[in-house]
Every structure is written in C-alpha cells, then in structure tokens.
Write a protein that binds this DNA or RNA. Sequence first.
DNA 1: AAATTATTCTATAGATATATAGAATCACGT
DNA 2: ACGTGATTCTATATATCTATAGAATAATTT
Lengths: 204, 204
Amino acid sequence: MPQINSDRYQQQRKQAIRSAAAVFAEKGFHGSSTKDIAERMGIKQGSLYYYFKSKEEALGEVCLFGIEDYVHRMDGIANGDQPFEAKLMATITSHLSSYREKNEALKVHNDERLYLPEEKRYRLRQLGSHYRQSLEGIFEEGVKSGALRDSIDCHFAAQAVIGICNAWGDLIVRDPQLDIFDIIQKCTDLLLNGFCERRKEKRT
Amino acid sequence: MPQINSDRYQQQRKQAIRSAAAVFAEKGFHGSSTKDIAERMGIKQGSLYYYFKSKEEALGEVCLFGIEDYVHRMDGIANGDQPFEAKLMATITSHLSSYREKNEALKVHNDERLYLPEEKRYRLRQLGSHYRQSLEGIFEEGVKSGALRDSIDCHFAAQAVIGICNAWGDLIVRDPQLDIFDIIQKCTDLLLNGFCERRKEKRT
DNA sequence: AAATTATTCTATAGATATATAGAATCACGT
DNA sequence: ACGTGATTCTATATATCTATAGAATAATTT
C-alpha cells in the first residue's frame, strides 16, 4: 500500500507526473509505454504502479498539473481592478508564461486529454469553461467602460484570445528561442488595434 | 499484388483513406487498430494491407489528403490580383471551409502527424511552410499598398492568422452547428480592426 | 540492532496489435 | 461457362503492453 500522506511519497509522485508529462508530450499517450515513463524516472516498469493505479490516472494527473496554474491565476486577474488593456495583457502573459514553465504538461493537456474517461474530461472542461468565462467577463467590462467597440462579440473575442495563445504556446514549446515578451506585445497590439493602417491617433 | 493502376483500386484506396481518417480522428493514431479501420470500411483486418503496406502509410496518406486542398488553393489566392482585404478573407474562407469538408483528415494532420517518420513529416512541413510564406507575401503586399500599418511584423501576422484559423477549425470540427460565415466575418474584422473603440471612420 | 513499514524489484498472466502467407472468392473478358 | 487475374478472407507468428503478485531491499522507529 502506498503511503499517500507522507511527504516523500508526494514528492516522488510529482516526479512521476513530470516524467509522464515529458514522455507523453514526446510520444503521445498511446505511443508511450509505462516502461518509457518508469525509465525516465529511473525506476522499473512495475514500480510505477506504486504511484498510479493505471496509466490513465497518470494522464489525468499530467493534464491537471498542466493547466491548474494559469486557470488559477485567471481569478486574480479577472477580479483585480486594473483597466481593460492591462487585464488583457496580464491574461496573455500568464497564459504564455505557463507554456514556458509547464510546456510538456500543457501540451499533453491540449493534445491527449480526449483519452481520459468522460468523468475526468468533465472536470477539465469545467476548468476551461471557467477560464473562458472569466475572460469573457473582462471583455464585457471593456465594452462597458468604453475601451472596446460595443459591436464586438465577447464570446468570440474570448475564444479568439485563447486560440491565439494556444497557437503561440505551441510554437513556444517547439522553439525555446522565441522571445516571449515580443509575442505578448504583438498579440496584444493585434487584438486591440488590428493590422490596418489608420489616420494617426494616440493609442497607448 | 495490388493493381495500383486500376480505377477501382484507386477508388477503394481513397475509401480506405477516408475510413482511416475517421478512425484516427476519433481515437488517435496509436489508439486506433487496423481492425477498427478495416471494420469501418467493411473489410477484414488483414485485407487492409492490400491498400497500405503499413498502418503508418495510412497515416501519411490521411495527413496529405487533409491539407492538400487548402494548400493548393492558397496559390490561386496569393497570385490573384485582388486587394489585400479580399485576399485575407479568401484565405480565411478557404482554410475554414477545409475544416468543414475534410474535418477528420485535417484534425488528424494537426494532431497525429508527429507519429510519421521524419521523411514524411518533412514533406508536410514543406507544404505548411509554403502556405505560410504565401500568406506572409499577402501581408507584405498589404503593407506596400498602404492597406496595413508598416509597423506590423508580417511573419507574426501570418502565423497569427493560421493560429486563429486552426483554433476555430478545431471548434468547427467539434460543433457542426457553428455558423462558419459568421466566424469568417468576425475573424477578418478582428484582424483588420482589432477590438478597440475609436472615433468613427468609414471602414468597409 | 530488531522490528516494522515503505519502496522497489522480478516475473508473469492475459490481452491485444501488426504484418504476412496462402487459400478462397469474386469479376470480367472471351 | 471457363479461365485469369484481382480482391478479400482465414489463420497465425511475433511482438508488445498493462497490471498484479509476491519477493527483495531500503528506510525508519523503537
């Protein structure tokens, strides 16, 4: 029986989650064997089952580990009292930073979560919805405050921001050379101002 | 020996590719068995090898099938003589339409191509690069013609458009109810104008 | 240091998958 | 209807993978 309350156990288990994240990110869930994961961690295949009751449980833990940080940070941003533009930029920064810090686990969440049983997918969907709704709320505030055109579709806008962040997140994972602050800057600029030329007006 | 020149063979093979696309899209490459694919096609597992010499060859064909249309259409758009805004909208329309028509194969290309051997991934990368470069060219034209601010980074812009299209493509695949023309409209508007309020100026 | 508990190992049962070989069936031209 | 080649089937060799059981080792407590 595992000693799930001990500190050492929890530390080793987190190590196992990180190993699983790395292997799943590289070879995909079904392309990875429990042997691969165990080897990366420096133990034998069978020993892995001291930390997970199944390969699928490992996947669930990796997915959760991947998103928990940025989903959690979103609450702080949405409930803060910054103006719209600052909140948008903070969101993008938080989201892209997660890709730097937890690249493997986040990639696994995006690409492999569909292999989880419905029950666990549901939990992840809830977190995702919560995130999207908070972002939608930020856009609604922006419209009310007059920072944004009132013709914009806040649901579409939130979805678009998430889409852009994930697309660039993917590129960031693949190419660690990319300048993340440059990307944050340009994404924000695109979302606020678009690409069109227009007669000069000061705009921060 | 397969009769690779006969019409019937080619038709059946395309059927096999579509079956593989459907199964791979649903369960992923490693999560699908050759039995699954054969069954969906209405033949027995072993018979599939009359059309593919390996499961991996099937994946390669599906990936290529998924992108060939929109990659090919891009040449027509880029070389046309429409103004910038029309080209941008045509690109988005073409890209998102592909997600409606070939949703399964396209999803497979995006999610599973990494399981191909380097040699085949290289070919797909070439097609992707060609696509991105054409789009980059459209943006460069747009800057030159004065339609776009000259401060924009065309490489970033092209990447962003592709990212947005793929993000929405994914949602389109999952939810066939979505109004694709509404999305095209809003994506174009976002890219051109951004979300900010600004003093009225006419803008098509 | 003995006893107890926690962790890892070895070995394996049982399931499932890919690819091949050779037999059986089908389609079609004559 | 016959023969020929095209297509599909059956059966299987070979490999691999998950999860478990029980032995072995390491760590900790008394």
